[in-house]
Measured scan of single mutants.
Amino acid sequence: MATGGRRGAAAAPLLVAVAALLLGAAGHLYPGEVCPGMDIRNNLTRLHELENCSVIEGHLQILLMFKTRPEDFRDLSFPKLIMITDYLLLFRVYGLESLKDLFPNLTVIRGSRLFFNYALVIFEMVHLKELGLYNLMNITRGSVRIEKNNELCYLATIDWSRILDSVEDNYIVLNKDDNEECGDICPGTAKGKTNCPATVINGQFVERCWTHSHCQKVCPTICKSHGCTAEGLCCHSECLGNCSQPDDPTKCVACRNFYLDGRCVETCPPPYYHFQDWRCVNFSFCQDLHHKCKNSRRQGCHQYVIHNNKCIPECPSGYTMNSSNLLCTPCLGPCPKVCHLLEGEKTIDSVTSAQELRGCTVINGSLIINIRGGNNLAAELEANLGLIEEISGYLKIRRSYALVSLSFFRKLRLIRGETLEIGNYSFYALDNQNLRQLWDWSKHNLTITQGKLFFHYNPKLCLSEIHKMEEVSGTKGRQERNDIALKTNGDQASCENELLKFSYIRTSFDKI
């Protein structure tokens, strides 16, 4: 039985969820670079991206490699990797027998973001014989899940209580170790020597080791999670996991709180800001991140802002960003909400898709409305799209047979046209069989910064309504002859009103 693990408890099935942008060198404390989270699957090609990484700022997932063999891993080693800020997950990587050479110096898994409450997941690794993470000293947050690894031993010899604050939620089941077939031998045991430290858990006094050649490092209890030197002297209180010299914040392997210019500090002093819960960055760093993602459509890219001495992905609820200094300031009234469309555009074809934009005031991208039916549609669209004030790209209304009016965009005031449909149009209306009105132009103002209007096959939309939009939106004169079809717009509506004058002759039985 794995020490510190839980057996036999019912657990939810383990679901495996399925960018080499360097964020800056980590400095003297770390020998390499800070790398983003990685999802490495199918083959070993991307694994080489770990070569210079000291910190993975995010998670590391290595999974679904069915053609790899043990010899493929023999020359692979990433000794610079010290810390993973989120979680480490391995799933069905064939041929991998140990992690001792792959990650010989991995010391800390912070667990800032977890995989279903777990910071370390080893699942269905069919050839893994031992973990071998002999320098792993601290899992700051989260638990361990090690399950269905039929060859995995050296679990009962690990004292997880020396690595985690609590072992109650560890789930370590259905491994070879369960069948008591392992016969784990710690260093020196074969020669009758006791080389590794022994600890007591559940009444068992057991030597602690990761492999037959690597003991588990056990520091004096007084050192807590700070770690200790090879001689057993406690590291500085700002260290986490390990250090090369005692009581020196510049000799830590990793930091308990924050890293700044080669030393570990309790908090980031001005003019620095907390970033990702582990390091200090200056304003320029946060500003660069903001600008890199301002026009990016890459998933996970955030326009970072500053709030409460932190550089964070977005302002919290009730705050909006001051564009001059990136500071989050309290909103006066309802907060603006910028919604970034991942692929640059979004099609609204149902109430469900409209709900995804609920509360958005600025759309960074283009909207395509293609709704053919739905219950209580006008009210639903207004509830979900009615706060949109600005669209950076274009607005396209296409084959939306259920629409009679666009009044559900009740606050839309600006279409920038930074991206144009077919390279020309910022407003595009095609084949809307029941569209009769755009907006009530006596109450609604709309500016279209650039781009043209396109109207074709809107049989109940009168040309007068379209011409009014040209005047109000500032697009009059931009359109070419064929942009607004004269014969297919309003051709099934009563669009022309003329005053009919009647004269009559009164007659009676005795007068003409």
Rank of each mutant, 00 (worst) to 15 (best):
H28L: 09
L29N: 08
Y30D: 07
Y30S: 12
P31I: 07
P31H: 00
G32L: 12
E33A: 15
E33C: 12
V34F: 15
D39Q: 08
D39V: 05
N42M: 08
N43S: 06
N43W: 06
L44K: 07
H48I: 08
L50S: 02
N52W: 03
N52I: 02
S54G: 01
V55D: 01
G58T: 01
L60F: 02
L60C: 04
Q61Y: 02
Q61K: 14
I62V: 13
I62M: 05
L63C: 14
R69D: 01
R69Q: 12
P70A: 07
P70Y: 05
D72M: 12
D72A: 04
D72G: 06
F73G: 09
R74Q: 04
D75M: 13
D75I: 10
D75G: 03
S77D: 02
L81P: 00
L81S: 01
L81T: 07
I82R: 12
M83Y: 02
I84Y: 00
I84F: 00
I84L: 02
D86H: 15
D86L: 00
D86N: 07
D86I: 01
Y87D: 00
L89M: 15
F91G: 10
R92L: 14
G95V: 02
G95A: 06
L96R: 01
S98T: 11
L99M: 10
K100N: 13
K100Y: 10
D101L: 11
L102V: 14
F103G: 00
P104L: 01
N105I: 02
T107V: 05
I109K: 00
I109P: 00
R110C: 08
R110S: 07
R110V: 04
G111S: 02
S112D: 15
S112I: 14
L114Q: 11
N117P: 04
A119W: 01
L120E: 00
L120P: 00
V121Q: 02
E124I: 00
E124F: 05
E124N: 11
M125D: 05
L128Q: 05
L128M: 08
K129A: 13
E130N: 09
E130R: 07
E130P: 01
L131Q: 02
L131I: 14
L131P: 02
L131G: 02
G132P: 01
Y134G: 12
L136Q: 05
N138D: 13
N138E: 14
G142D: 02
G142Q: 01
G142T: 00
S143R: 06
V144K: 00
V144F: 02
V144Q: 01
R145P: 02
I146W: 00
I146F: 05
K148D: 09
N149Y: 00
E151L: 11
C153A: 05
C153K: 14
Y154H: 12
L155G: 14
L155I: 11
L155P: 05
A156R: 11
A156D: 00
T157Y: 11
T157C: 07
T157A: 11
D159Q: 12
W160V: 01
R162G: 04
I163V: 12
D165V: 11
D165N: 05
V167L: 04
E168L: 10
D169I: 10
D169R: 12
D169W: 08
D169L: 08
V173T: 11
N175V: 03
N175P: 13
D177A: 15
D177N: 13
N179A: 09
C182G: 04
G183Y: 07
D184K: 12
I185C: 08
C186T: 10
T189F: 12
A190D: 12
A190L: 10
A190E: 04
K191N: 10
G192H: 13
N195E: 14
C196P: 09
P197E: 06
P197W: 05
P197M: 11
A198L: 09
T199A: 06
I201Q: 10
N202K: 11
N202C: 06
G203P: 06
G203F: 08
G203R: 09
F205I: 08
F205S: 14
E207Q: 08
E207T: 14
C209Y: 02
C209R: 09
C209I: 02
W210Q: 06
W210C: 09
T211F: 12
T211V: 12
H212V: 05
S213A: 04
H214V: 13
C215S: 07
C215M: 15
Q216L: 12
Q216W: 07
K217F: 14
K217Q: 14
K217C: 07
V218G: 11
C219K: 02
T221E: 15
T221A: 10
S225G: 06
S225N: 15
G227V: 09
C228I: 03
T229F: 15
E231T: 09
G232C: 14
L233R: 14
C234Q: 02
C235S: 00
H236P: 03
H236L: 01
S237C: 09
C239L: 00
G241K: 04
G241A: 09
N242A: 11
N242H: 08
N242V: 11
D247M: 04
D248W: 02
P249S: 06
T250Y: 03
T250D: 02
T250S: 06
C252V: 00
C252K: 01
V253L: 15
V253A: 06
V253Q: 06
C255R: 00
C255Q: 01
R256I: 09
N257V: 01
N257C: 00
F258H: 04
L260Q: 01
D261L: 01
R263P: 00
R263T: 00
C264F: 01
E266V: 10
T267I: 03
T267Y: 14
C268T: 00
C268P: 00
P269A: 06
P270K: 03
P271A: 03
P271T: 05
Y272A: 01
Y272K: 04
Y272W: 11
Y273P: 02
H274N: 15
Q276M: 04
D277W: 05
D277Q: 09
R279Q: 15
F283N: 07
S284V: 07
F285P: 01
F285K: 01
C286A: 01
Q287W: 15
Q287G: 15
L289K: 15
L289A: 09
H290A: 06
K292S: 11
R297H: 08
R298V: 11
R298F: 05
Q299N: 15
Q299A: 07
G300M: 05
G300F: 07
C301D: 03
Q303I: 11
Y304V: 04
V305Y: 02
V305E: 02
I306C: 02
H307V: 04
C311K: 03
C311E: 01
P313D: 10
P313L: 04
E314Y: 04
E314I: 03
C315Q: 01
P316K: 03
S317D: 05
S317Q: 15
G318F: 05
Y319V: 03
T320M: 08
N322K: 14
S324N: 11
S324T: 07
S324L: 07
N325Q: 12
L326W: 03
L326Q: 09
L327R: 12
C328K: 00
T329A: 07
P330Y: 11
C331S: 03
L332Q: 07
L332I: 05
G333T: 03
C335Y: 04
C335Q: 04
